[in-house]
C-alpha cells in the first residue's frame, strides 16, 4: 500500500512537473523593423529570421510565448522592469551588456564582408598586396577593431559614422575597399552597379544571444538546451537558408 502511494505521488509529481513546464509563459521582445531578422510582412504579421527561430525555440521548450514590440532604447530597461522576459532582437553580446543581463549562448553572428569595385582584384588577406590601400570601416564596430588590429600601419584606415557616407566615398574612389557588416554591405554596396564582394566574409565578435534577467538562470538553461537542439536537428539551418545566402550560424 505504501509502495502504491509512493508510486502514485511520484507519478503525480511527474505530471505536475511536466504540466509546469508546459505552462511556462514567456514574453519575447523584438525591435521592428530590422529586416531580415524581425519585420512585419504585408499582412502586418511579425516575421523574420529571429521571429521564426523564437517560434521554433518556444515549441522546443514547450513554452507559451507572446511576442512584444519594443523600441531599441528601452530594451534592457523593459527587460529589467519585467515588461517581457526575453530579448531576441539582434543584441550582440558585449561585456558591458553582460553586466546587466544574462546572455544565452550565441545563436548567430553576421560576418564582416569585404566589398569593392569590379576592378579590385587584390587578395584582402595578402598583407603585401594590400599595403598602401585605403580601407573604409564604420567607427567603433567589430570590423573597425579587426582592421585596426590586423592591418593597422599596412593600410590606410578611414573611419565613418554612417555606412552611407562610407559608400559615397567608395563610389567616389576615395576608398579602395570597405569592410562592413555583411547584411549592411549587401544592402548598400552590392545593390549598386559595378561593385562586388572582394574577399571571404570574416566572423567577428561574440555574436548575438538571447538576453534574460540575471536571476532567470533556469530559463537560460532551457533556452540554451532548446537552441542547441535546433542547431543540431537542422531546424536552424532551414530557417537560416530561408533568409540568408551565407552562413551566420554560431
Amino acid at each position: 500500500m505504501k509502495k502504491m502511494i509512493f508510486a502514485a505521488s511520484c507519478a503525480l509529481a511527474l505530471i505536475a512537473g511536466s504540466a509546469q513546464a508546459q505552462e511556462r509563459d514567456l514574453r519575447i521582445a523584438f525591435d521592428v523593423p530590422y529586416a531580415p531578422f524581425e519585420y512585419k510582412d504585408e499582412n502586418g504579421n511579425l516575421t523574420g529570421f529571429e521571429v521564426e527561430l523564437a517560434e521554433a525555440m518556444c515549441e522546443e521548450m514547450n513554452a507559451n510565448c507572446e511576442f512584444v514590440i519594443q523600441a531599441w532604447d528601452g530594451m534592457i530597461p523593459g527587460l529589467l522592469a519585467r515588461k517581457f522576459d526575453l530579448i531576441m532582437s539582434s543584441m550582440s553580446i558585449t561585456p558591458e551588456r553582460a553586466e546587466r543581463v544574462l546572455f544565452s549562448e550565441p545563436y548567430y553572428n553576421t560576418p564582416g564582408g569585404w566589398f569593392g569595385p569590379e576592378s579590385f582584384n587584390t587578395d584582402v588577406t595578402d598583407m603585401d598586396a594590400m599595403a598602401g590601400k585605403t580601407v573604409g570601416v564604420q567607427r567603433g564596430t567589430t570590423m573597425d577593431t579587426y582592421v585596426t588590429e590586423n592591418m593597422g600601419g599596412i593600410v590606410t584606415i578611414k573611419r565613418y559614422t554612417t555606412a552611407d557616407d562610407m559608400v559615397l566615398d567608395l563610389e567616389g574612389q576615395r576608398l579602395d575597399v570597405v569592410f562592413v557588416d555583411y547584411p549592411v554591405g549587401e544592402e548598400t554596396v552590392l545593390s549598386k552597379e559595378g561593385f562586388k564582394e572582394v574577399g571571404e566574409p570574416v566572423k567577428l565578435g561574440q555574436g548575438v544571444g538571447v538576453a534574460m534577467r540575471q536571476r532567470d538562470t533556469e530559463v537560460a538553461e532551457e533556452v540554451n538546451a532548446a537552441l542547441r537542439t535546433l542547431k543540431e536537428d537542422g531546424t536552424y539551418d532551414t530557417i537560416m537558408q530561408k533568409y540568408f545566402a551565407y552562413d551566420i550560424k554560431m
Partner: peptide, 10 residues
C-alpha cells in the same frame, strides 16, 4: 562629396 560625384573627375 559633391566634387567626387562630378563625372570623370577621377
Amino acid at each position: 562629396y559633391g566634387l567626387a560625384q562630378i563625372e570623370g573627375i577621377q
